[in-house]
């Protein structure tokens, strides 16, 4: 039972991550490979606030989301200045710089040793949320809230402008909207919710180290997004489901652990290549990836 709950908790965390990646990548077609950087920044900020301050969950969550969101300004600045592949490269650079800082700035982040003993979050300031059941409830509620929030976003006027930016920025400018502002919003929201995922992860696992927030993790999140599909809510949620549940299925098949990791990656790779040819909008997505 606890094993299943653990999987559901991780699934909820990945739903947050993939949904927030869907906002810039799926709606506005800004292919950023640095979702894991925001995830990591969120996790490290949370570790600091949970270890040093005794704050209720909502307050910690808001602080972490705002701080992570502010870090996203770097990326949205890049998205305004740079187009296409250059933007992809800039986000890659951002991801690598964040990882290098987490890894090498040992006085603050404890580098490769990681930070251990991160306390659980406190609901309403008193009840310390402990145990797997508590986290199961918390993450499920949060991921449902986020699904509801993001579900309306595409149909809202904001989503309309983002979709327009995806097609043609010049037109958006010529009708009096500043694409830079909307990119700022999109990245801020995306980073903030990735940060929230970081908070949940850090306090649930109670130990973090930089290797959870690598470029590979960013690529993994994008893989989940593209497998599921971009542009709607179903797609990212389904993508998260695939990447979280598939390894467990492989485990049941009885592959040795050393092989399972590589084999699973090969399966993701195959799915990606085949999808790009047969169904570039992903298994459940609405929009095709464009240039």
């Amino acid at each position: 039972m606890e094993y299943i709950l653990h999987i559901v908790i991780m699934l909820n965390i990945y739903i947050l991550l993939v949904l927030s990646a869907n906002l810039p990548v799926g709606l506005a077609n800004l292919l950023s490979i640095c979702q894991a950087a925001f995830y990591g920044i969120g996790a490290y900020f949370s570790a600091y606030f949970l270890l040093q301050w005794n704050l209720p969950f909502v307050v910690v969550a808001l602080i972490v989301m705002c701080l992570t969101g502010l870090c996203s300004l770097v990326v949205s600045f890049a998205s305004v200045k740079l187009k296409g592949d250059y933007f992809v490269l800039a986000t890659l650079a951002f991801q690598m710089i964040v990882f290098t800082i987490l890894y090498n700035w040992t006085e603050v982040t404890r580098g490769p040793y990681g930070i251990s003993g991160i306390p659980s979050v406190k609901l309403f300031g008193i009840i310390s949320l402990s145990g797997i059941y508590g986290y199961f409830a918390l993450t499920t509620v949060l991921s449902l809230i986020v699904i509801l929030l993001f579900g309306n976003l595409k149909k809202s006027p904001f989503g309309r402008v983002l979709t327009a930016i995806r097609s043609d920025e010049l037109t958006v400018l010529s009708i009096g909207r500043n694409p830079a502002r909307f990119k700022n919003y999109a990245f801020f929201i995306s980073a903030a919710f990735s940060g929230l995922a970081g908070l949940l992860y850090a306090s649930y696992i109670s130990y973090i180290d930089p290797t959870s927030f690598t470029l590979d993790e960013s690529i993994f999140i994008l893989t989940a997004l593209f497998i599921g599909g971009i542009g709607n809510i179903k797609g990212p949620v389904f993508g998260a489901l695939v990447v979280v549940v598939l390894p467990e299925i492989l485990r049941f098949v009885g592959l040795p652990d050393a092989m399972a990791a590589n084999l699973r990656q090969i399966i993701y790779g195959l799915i990606l290549v085949l999808l790009m040819y047969f169904k570039p909008q992903g298994l459940m997505g609405e929009l095709k990836i464009k240039n």
């Binding site: 994008l222 090969i266 993701y268 790779g269 799915i271 790009m276 040819y277 990836i289």
Partner: peptide, 9 residues
């Protein structure tokens, strides 16, 4: 993205 897939494989 297909290229990412090839790399992983």
């Amino acid at each position: 993205i297909a290229s990412i897939g090839i790399m992983t494989i």
